[in-house]
Design a protein around this nucleic acid. Structure first.
Length: 726
RNA sequence: GGUCGCGUAGCGCAGCUGGUUAGCGCACCGCAUUCACAUUGCGGGGGUCACUGGUUCGAAUCCAGUCGCGACCACCA
């Protein structure tokens, strides 16, 4: 053995040995207890980040521990296609080449992204392997694998048969820049200062930040208890507008805060979530002012075709000129919705696909309330309960190409008003209503060049995995990625009738970052119970988010992103994994613990040198234990007991500290120092304690422990397959 | 506005269902060193556990309130 442990000499080689041994391949059917974890699939197009490292470290600890305990431990790896994110990344690449997604038909674009993702996917998989993750690669899955797609489509079909799918106009967060809708949880709310305009509206004055939407106003609302305006409720007012006079109804609605502005609100049901709700309550018409391209529609008269911001400027100028603006509050601070790319999101009405969640939510909520599924740390389960209680129907369609296409079909003859855009045989983009397009083009051409299709809310459709007939066009929307990843535990285990599914389902632990508790965990719960009657996991362990060294969130703009690769190179995988695991104790967010990473690199070396001390000692035959020997053995047994206890409670940091303290300070500093003059006599105890320490610490620092094991106990085979000390 | 969490040594934190002199890492100070390890060893300083009140034989730990900080959810045009 060399004087110091050099991780670079061992890590790659040990991974190869583990691979060759097949130790991570789980076999079904033996009379053993199954222990299953499904790896939350990292983005196939991204790079491994520190959060992924922590996740892998924790799950690897659990899996290696249970494997050594003699259970059939299965850890299923996989990668996620990450719909919107990947598509945006790819489109950025396209832009550099002077292209956009509008240069492609749907099918070709999909193929392009597929190719783009494949390379990255391999890199991510290599990184998972590099982390020492003891996953079963023979069961590796990608969220767009054929069997996954098939399951997801079948589930959708089943939901539809159960009457849980509907299509409807719905207020969505539409980003004209990205050309897609976002779920509520995908958008951010940021503080911003915008001018608040006080506009004369017939007999009233009302405040708004969005004067350009006034063309979509279908009422004016006041609080029913507001004595100033009470008498107006139910009456019509005449308003002097930019294109002449028009009439509006006055409604009374509790939503209106008499204290804010003038206590009068213009109601624009097509472009504001609250107004939309009010519109529903009062049966108001919805008039679309902003189109899907982010520009004003024909109803805006001369402002049609202008972008929202230009239109706003124009409208304000013209209102000023007409004397219709009473005053402007330039310092009005409010929150606006933006997408992940930072664009303003337009609340817009679009036909979308929905799932009724009432019947799905109840059992998913009860499972946690009744303790059938336990969430750690416990206080996080409150977040889950609150979220589930407030959940709305789930919009599962996305106007993305990169994803699982919704298996719904529109008959082109029965639905004359489908809006279609496609690339014709000359390579030109053609848009229009299907009934008109069919006069000039055969349906086959439209089908092969299809880009997007928007069917009105009332369109006739059929849900079918296969094309129902020649006259049909398939929906161009794809599923929300959380709809497909919500079935991940089932998809990876080959639901419904594989041997894996029967043996390994439900999985043991779902381990992930708390930030996707509502996005992902809740959906897996709902869909898992819906399909199988059983929650997809018994325990949920939520780790904290790894922040930057300064304790702030990692972000590109702050330039504080920590690249795990650098740490792996300098300190080794073991040290990085261990540092992260020991740095988080109770599921709270925490700053990247650089000090600990360094500390555990030193620890790896300490352990190495303990072994190096013990290795050359030849045991004396018939040696008897003395007091020191007995003491260290007792202490070891105490540690073993505690380690098991802590691991059962997911208290990884405590285990780390405990074993670290035991090996370094009790075993090395005290015991070894004391036996130096009777080494040969103590050899048996020395080897015994070392052996058990290696086992105990193997799940945490798999490389250095395996490396030492191979040096000292090669006759025993590999450490990965050793029996856990009980 | 709603919800959750945090405030313990200079810094970063642990202390789970209350129990002897409150711990860990880093930093700091002194000493040692041909020994398995300088990626080392031995020793040391440093805290009225945010504040106020309560429960208790006993509170950093439980309860109430106050102040400060953070996160998530919602959104008043």
């Amino acid at each position: 053995m060399q004087k110091n442990y050099d991780h670079k000499l061992y890590e790659e080689e040990i991974i190869k040995k583990w691979d060759e041994s097949g130790a991570f391949k789980a076999k079904v059917g033996v009379a053993k207890k199954p222990y299953t974890i499904v790896l939350p699939p990292p983005n196939a197009s991204g790079k491994m980040h520190t959060g992924n490292v922590l996740m892998i470290a924790i799950e690897d600890i659990l899996i290696r521990w249970h494997r050594m305990k003699g259970e059939t431990a299965l850890w299923i790896p996989g990668t996620d296609h990450a719909g919107t994110e990947t598509q945006i990344t790819f489109e950025r690449e396209l832009k550099k080449q002077g292209k956009s997604r509008f240069n492609f038909n749907r099918e070709d674009f999909y193929k392009e992204v597929w190719t783009f993702v494949q390379g990255n996917k391999l890199l991510v998989e290599a990184q998972i392997r590099r982390m020492g993750a003891s996953v079963d690669w023979s069961r590796n899955k990608f969220t767009l694998d054929e069997d996954v797609v098939s399951l997801v489509c079948k589930t959708f079909e089943k939901l539809n048969n159960d009457g849980l799918v509907y299509r409807g106009d719905y207020m969505v967060n539409y980003c004209p820049n990205c050309g897609t809708t976002y779920a509520d949880i995908e958008i951010d709310h940021i503080e911003r200062t915008d001018p608040l305009y006080y506009i004369k509206y017939g007999p009233f004055v009302l405040a708004t930040v969005r004067p350009e939407t006034k063309f979509g106003d279908t009422a004016v609302a006041v609080n029913p208890a507001d004595s100033r305006y009470k008498e107006w409720i139910g009456k019509e007012i005449e308003v002097e507008g930019l294109s002449g006079k028009f009439k509006l109804k006055v409604i009374g609605d509790e939503f209106v805060d008499p204290e804010f502005g003038t206590g009068v609100v213009k109601v624009t049901p097509a472009h504001d979530p609250n107004d939309y709700e009010m519109g529903k309550r009062h049966g108001l018409a919805t008039i679309k002012v902003i189109g899907l391209n982010g520009k004003l529609t024909e109803v805006a008269g001369k402002y049609a075709g202008l972008s929202v911001f230009t239109a706003r400027k124009q409208v304000v100028e013209d209102l000023m000129a007409k004397g219709l603006i009473e005053k402007v509050d330039e310092k009005y601070s409010h929150t606006v919705s933006v997408c992940k790319a930072g664009h303003d999101v337009e609340p817009t009405i679009l036909p979308n696909w929905f799932i009724k969640i009432d019947s799905l939510r109840k059992p998913a909520l009860d499972a946690v309330k009744e303790g059938k599924v336990k969430i750690y740390p416990k206080w996080r389960s409150l977040t889950y309960v609150r979220w589930m209680e407030n959940m709305h129907d789930w919009a599962i369609s996305r106007q993305n190409i990169w994803g699982i296409r919704i298996p719904a079909w529109y008959n082109s003859k029965a639905n004359q008003d489908l809006m279609v855009s496609f690339i014709n045989s000359q390579g030109a983009v053609v848009k229009g209503q299907i009934s008109n397009l069919l006069k000039d083009y055969p349906l086959v051409d439209i089908k092969s060049g299809l880009q997007t299709l928007i069917a009105p809310a009332g369109a006739n459709y059929e849900i079918s995995i296969k094309e129902p007939g020649e006259d049909y066009l398939q929906e161009t929307d794809t599923f929300d990625t959380w709809f497909s990843s919500g079935q991940w535990p089932l998809a990876t285990l080959g639901y419904p009738d594989s041997e894996d599914f029967k043996y390994f389902y439900p999985t043991s632990v779902l381990e992930t970052g708390w930030e996707i508790l509502s996005k992902w965990v809740s959906r897996m719960m709902m869909l898992g119970i819906y399909l199988t009657g059983t929650p997809p996991f018994k325990d949920v362990y939520l780790h904290g988010i790894v922040r930057a060294l300064d304790g702030r969130k990692m972000s590109k703009s702050l330039e504080n992103i920590i690249n795990p690769e650098e740490y792996i190179k300098e300190f080794g995988v073991d040290a990085l994994r261990m540092g992260l695991v020991a740095g988080t104790a109770n599921g709270k967010d925490f700053a990247f613990p650089r000090d600990r990473v360094i500390g555990y690199k030193k620890f790896a070396n300490k352990l190495w040198n303990v072994a190096r001390f013990i290795e050359p000692i030849t045991p004396k035959p018939n040696s008897v234990d003395n007091e020191d020997d007995q003491k260290i053995l007792d202490e070891l047994n105490e540690v073993i007991k505690k380690v098991n206890l802590y691991l059962e409670k997911f208290r990884f940091a405590e285990v780390a500290e405990l074993i670290y303290e035991f090996i370094w300070h009790r075993f090395a500093d005290i015991y070894i120092e004391r036996v130096k003059n009777r080494k040969e006599e103590a050899a048996g105890t020395l080897r015994h304690v070392l052996m058990n320490c290696l086992k105990l610490f193997h799940p945490f620092m798999p490389f250095v422990t395996e490396a030492i094991w191979q040096e000292i106990f090669p006759e025993q085979g590999m450490l990965v397959s050793q029996r856990w000390p009980e």
